[in-house]
Structure formats: structure tokens, C-alpha cells
Amino acid sequence: MFEARLVQCSMLKKVLEAIKELLNEATFDCSDAGIQLQAMDNSHVSLVSLNLRSDGFDKYRCDRNLSMGINLASMTKIMKCAGNDDVLTIKAQDNADNVMFMFESQNQEKVSDYDMKLINLDQEHLGIPETDYSCIIKMPSGEFARICRDLSQFGESVVISCTKEGVKFSAAGDVGAANIKLAQTANVDKEEEAVTIEMQEPVTLTFACRYLNSFTKATALSPQVQLSMSADVPLVVEYKIGDFGHIRYYLAPKIEE
């Protein structure tokens, strides 16, 4: 038996928003520790890794490990039926071929349940090695989203260049060239508005704009985003999810032919 209760179901709506542009379907692996998802986009260029710890939920029970293959378009249809303040309960029997979503209004006067068919997906788990990154940039997630949106008007690729002084995002194309430089913030009132850089050595890498823009669909999950970079390895874009865990996106760099 699997059962997870979430008082504010808006978190799951935001998670879904953060993954559905990259993935058509995904397997939610449920265990005693929580819910995990790892999936590559169809072109095998980026990977989404989601971790929601069981202790973040208001109630969580998972007697046996359960892998739920879910069509994300179907799940989106169901989650649209929930109010942001509804209490959500997800339930599945062991070895079930369906999962139930139950939404209760705060005053408990409206209760809806939706049963969704599960699908069989070929699971492809990737081992992600522990990496010491040369540069770790923390910045407001809204600022990162804005930069990716602005630069995508100029070219298909964004060059991210990180030094001790700051981080520079550049794009170039038919229109011309664009450069956005962010310096480390000296002092800010709010931690979430800070730009901080931990640098071992400077790094410059090129990435496809389209994917960075898809990652920014997670902006609503966290006020800050963390970018981890090392030469010739995938970029990690991480958004913390409150008391639950995180969503991480890995994106392979573009390299010279």
C-alpha cells in the first residue's frame, strides 16, 4: 500500500509544471525514503532528477517499493482539477495498475477522486558520479529565468562564463550579440536576492538555450537556483523544494567539432 498526503497540493502542481515540457512520461519510484524520478528527455541531452523526501509529506506510507509509470499529460489533466489549497492524497495498492488522486477542499465540503491508469515504461537508470565542480553559482531563480528568456532571442546557444568577479551569460546570432554580467552581491537584505559564486577555477561552457528555458519552468519551486559547472561535464541546474528535497536538471554542454 502506498499513501502520501500533502496539505498544499500546489507543490505537486509546480513539480509537474517543472517537468512536463521536457518529459512526456516518467516513472515515479516510491520507497520508504520518498518519491524519486529520474528521466532523460527524448533527445538524451538533458536529464531530470527529482527527489521528494517522505518526511516532507504530511502523511507518508510505503509498504513496498513501487514504480509508477505515469503519462504526464494525463497527470496534468487531473492536477488541473485540484484547487491550490486542496489537500491531496495519492494512493496506490501494491502492484496496482492504477493510482488514485484525492482532493479535499480545506473545509472538507468537497471531495473529488480521480483514478489514473499507470503505464509500463522501460526504466533507464543512469549513475551520476559525484563531481567537485569548478564553479557553483547561486542566484535568484527569477533572474536566471529572465536571462534565459532574454538571451534566447539572440541565438540557440548561451555561453556561461564564470570567474571570481562574476558570471557572464552571452548569446549571438543574426540580430547581433548580447552579454549579461552579474557580479557577486556585496550585501543584500534578503538571502534569496543574493548572487554568490564559489570558484575553484574559471569555467566557460556553451549550452542550448531551449533546454535552459525548459529548466526555468521550475522557478516557482524556489526563490534561488544553483548552477554547478566544470569543464566538459554536464551543467547542473538545481532548485530546492522547501522541506521536500530538490529538482535537478543536467544538461550536456556543446563542444567544438
Binding site: 543512469l126 549513475g127 554536464p234 556543446k254
Partner: peptide, 14 residues
């Protein structure tokens, strides 16, 4: 010219 890398080259299938 730039070539887009694939992730599978960086991570191992387990």
C-alpha cells in the same frame, strides 16, 4: 561549429 553532446557519454547506465 558546435556539436551538442549526449548525456549518456557522461553518465553510466546502471
Amino acid at each position: 561549429a558546435l556539436r551538442q553532446c549526449l548525456l549518456t557519454g557522461f553518465f553510466m547506465n546502471i
